[in-house]
Amino acid sequence: MTTLPTLPFTGRSILVTGASSGLGAACVRRFAAGGGSVYAASRDQERLAEVAASCADLPGTVRYGVLDVGDASSCRAAVADAVAAFGRLDVLVNNAGRHDFRITTEVTDEQWHHDLAVNLSGAFFTSQAAIPHLLEAAGNIVNVSSVAGIHGEAYSAAYTAAKHGLVGLTKALAVEYLTTPLRVNCVCPGGMDTPQVHNIDIPEGADWELIMRISAKRGFMTADSVAAVVCFLASDDAAAVHGSIQLVDHGHLAG
């Protein structure tokens, strides 16, 4: 009779980007609870220290370091730091991102390039640096897109374009590495109850109903409920799941 492991990430090294709050922090805690060695990366070192402290009593290990996901060299450095910390890399969670609402005709060149860098290019450069290590470990990538990667969202042209791009990146990598042990999957969450939601800056003249329709029926999800799906995809339980785009949205796009 086969017994299931109680700590599915024992002996595994995991890099989580955007780990200082919200979904990233929830992922760090879940991986650590599963016995994983987690490298938490973000710009906010003070909040990362708090996340690491909250995991002190868990069976896993948490270390943390700086990452500016909008800078390619910083993405590559974060991967190198994670490998240096634990000697290997088994899982990459590309969670870092930011959703700023802007009226399309008022978006500046700088804002457009920033939104694409933070929500798409960072995941590409981090994946590019991580793939050689993940191939060696027969590991996997979990990209965090959004329901905005599946449908359109008002006042979010750059964000929506970037998140659609992240879905496309997932599919492209899944096909490119089809004959290798590497798995690549994507989670598309709906509205979550995170600090970002409570600090939404709505542009003047925007239609609030268009923005909030995402949570019209069942309300916001908890970050931990989405982190559970991320950790499932990163685990051996999802060994047959490759190239998938997982909606986690309280059924928002079901109709």
Rank of each mutant, 00 (worst) to 15 (best):
A82I: 04
N94M: 07
N95D: 10
R102T: 03
R102I: 00
N95T: 07
I103E: 13
D90M: 04
H113Q: 13
N95G: 09
D90I: 02
V118M: 06
E110M: 00
V91L: 06
V118T: 14
T104N: 14
H114M: 14
D115W: 05
D100P: 05
W112H: 05
W112G: 02
V93Y: 08
A117L: 05
L89C: 10
F86R: 00
T104Y: 13
A96Q: 08
N94E: 12
D81M: 05
A84C: 10
V93P: 01
H99V: 09
R98Q: 14
F86W: 00
H114R: 14
L116E: 04
W112Y: 07
D81E: 13
R98M: 14
E106K: 08
D90T: 08
G97C: 08
L92I: 06
V79M: 08
F86P: 00
V91D: 00
A80G: 12
Q111E: 15
D109T: 11
T105P: 12
D100S: 13
R102C: 06
V118H: 05
W112F: 11
L92H: 03
D90S: 12
N95E: 10
A85H: 00
H99D: 14
A78W: 01
F101L: 15
N94W: 07
A117K: 05
L89D: 04
I103K: 07
H99K: 09
A82L: 06
Q111S: 13
A80M: 09
E110C: 06
T104R: 13
V79R: 03
H113F: 05
V91N: 00
A96D: 11
A84K: 11
F101S: 04
D109W: 12
D81R: 02
V107I: 12
G97I: 07
V83Q: 02
A78I: 02
T105H: 15
R98N: 15
V91C: 01
E110V: 04
L116V: 09
E110S: 07
E110F: 02
D109N: 11
E106F: 04
L116N: 00
D90K: 03
V83D: 06
V91K: 02
Q111T: 07
H99T: 09
T104H: 12
W112V: 09
Q111M: 08
A96V: 07
F86L: 05
V91Q: 02
H114G: 10
D115K: 07
N94K: 09
E106L: 03
A84S: 15
